[in-house]
Design a protein around this nucleic acid. Structure first.
Lengths: 203, 203
DNA sequence: TCCTTTCACATACCGATGGTATGTGAAGTA
DNA sequence: TACTTCACATACCATCGGTATGTGAAAGGA
């Protein structure tokens, strides 16, 4: 029997792996993927490189594990914000707003938005993103089109456009010091979303 | 007198630098920034590492020079498409469409959209982007708001949202094989742009 | 209980890479 | 011609990601 977690070995294993992911996340976020070495990570975690290569296939694999944690956290915040609403449309807007604010966190930025695509490649990054938060966006949009609140159209391009817009906006917000920048950005994004609901304007 | 370009030395200098940028671009685009070594670049260019470090401060500086070339090319295509139109609104849409198609080029993708922000940092990447193509977008939006075609609002957030949407859409298009994906994406983006012109819908 | 196996690491080591310090010969200059 | 400058080439180094192997404690069976 695996006896997961209750044996001495399983407990220690989880502890070591957790420390590696935790310190890896801290250092990757602080200095960036390329700037931090494995020696620094294992020293901070109190282990050696042998432990790291026992748990992960390499530096990129550790980063991938870190990215998964970060994305799950962001997805949790988005889902919580959306879950607090009843109306499907309100759920979409609340989720987008939560994502926008979550993206302003420097840790999220560096790991999820900057290094993520470059280190893992865009396809793998997108697969993780899809599994975490982008899935909610797709489902929300699909539900709204099915309900007739959004004119029928492929949801995939819409998801990518909105996701990219929010990612870039979050990165910009981090390096802009205007007090109204967040509000202005949200106002513009909100107008984009409203335009979806209203459908294409009569010409 | 500098005698720029007409002396033997200046001519040779330009040749060497050009070869480094050209081969660097080819290799960076093909394998990605991290995967290609300086030895490979200088061998392809027919010089040595001494030449590279004579012209550039390091690997990142060479990449920066490559990125500038790529961004100028994209900006040229966007400006050409926009310049073919007379109406300011048609210029905006034509420019956006040109940018979207330009972004599907694998070379542009890898260098400008994937490695660019991660290698140089988002702030420096954005400064280059602003100097090249994003400036046109900002000016077009500013002109349209001044002309009353777009409701008055800060143009900076709008620029970032649209720029991010197009960047992400271009990356997605590269790895999607649906024949109508490009058309669908452009249709969705076009609706977003139209929504700007129409202004916020009555609620 | 004793022996064996497995596992979760630690230790030692290697090739490759970005970067630097220095040498060199031709092009420019007085 | 003598001297200086420049555009590289050569030689070298520290560090990094990755690997191969060793090791001692925990798990499992008799």
């Amino acid at each position: 029997m695996p006896d997961a977690h209750h044996t001495t070995r399983a407990r220690q294993r989880e502890l070591t792996r957790g420390a590696l992911v935790r310190e890896g996340r801290r250092l990757f976020a602080a200095e960036g993927y390329a700037a931090v070495g494995l020696a620094e990570i294992v020293r901070a975690a109190g282990v050696t490189k042998g432990a790291l290569y026992h748990h992960f296939d390499g530096k990129a694999a550790l980063f991938r594990a870190v990215l998964e944690v970060v994305q799950q956290e962001v997805a949790g915040r988005v889902a919580a914000a959306a879950g607090a609403e009843d109306d499907p449309w309100a759920q979409l807007t609340a989720g987008c707003r939560a994502f926008l604010t979550a993206g302003t966190d420097p840790e999220v930025q560096r790991i999820m938005l900057l290094d993520g695509p470059a280190v893992l490649g865009w396809n793998e990054w997108r697969a993780l993103d899809e599994a975490a938060s982008a899935r909610h966006l797709t489902e929300a949009l699909a539900g709204l089109t099915a309900a007739g609140e959004i004119p029928p159209q492929p949801v995939e391009p819409l998801t990518r456009l909105l996701s990219g817009a929010m990612n870039e906006a979050a990165l910009w917000l981090a390096s802009s010091h205007g007090p109204t920048d967040l509000d202005d950005t949200w106002a513009a994004l909100s107008r984009m979303l409203e335009a979806l609901r209203a459908g294409p304007p009569a010409r």
